[in-house]
């Protein structure tokens, strides 16, 4: 954005994005509750969105923002279906621990 006196460099946004993505990945690896893993995935999606917006500003294009809009729509769909699956697993296993849901393993 031209015209702003002291602009935060794009690298700072990318750094924050990387840290948030790392925290999300840590959550997926660390936690065994399907719900917490799900929230960590949402955090990673948000980190990537931040990168897209930051790069969009860097190159003066709006495509990044539009793609983020699509990512949000896909995330909403993913959450709806994913939570339905978690509810279904809970109904049959009485647990949201992913170790209890390993019966698909060959």
């Amino acid at each position: 954005m031209p015209g702003f006196p002291e602009v935060v460099p794009t690298e700072a946004y990318l750094g924050l994005s990387a840290v948030l993505f790392g925290i999300g990945a840590l959550g997926v690896v660390l936690r065994k509750s399907a719900l917490t893993m799900f929230m960590s995935i949402e955090l990673m999606l948000n980190a990537v969105n931040l990168s897209l917006v930051a790069f969009g500003r860097q190159f003066g294009r709006l495509d990044g923002q539009v793609i983020v809009f699509f990512v949000m729509a896909v995330a909403a769909a993913e959450v709806a279906v994913g939570l339905a699956i978690i509810v279904d697993i809970y109904r049959s296993r009485r647990s949201v621990d992913i170790d209890d849901a390993s019966w698909l393993r060959g």
Binding site: E42, N49, A54, R57, A76
Partner: peptide
């Protein structure tokens, strides 16, 4: 801060609003 005002509103409405309410309901 990045000048993405539309996304800021959508972020609050869709993520902090819709998606998180759904998650809290399931929890």
């Amino acid at each position: 801060l990045l000048g993405a005002y539309f996304l800021a509103v959508v972020q609050v409405a869709v993520y902090a609003g819709a998606i998180m309410v759904l998650m809290l309901f399931v929890i």
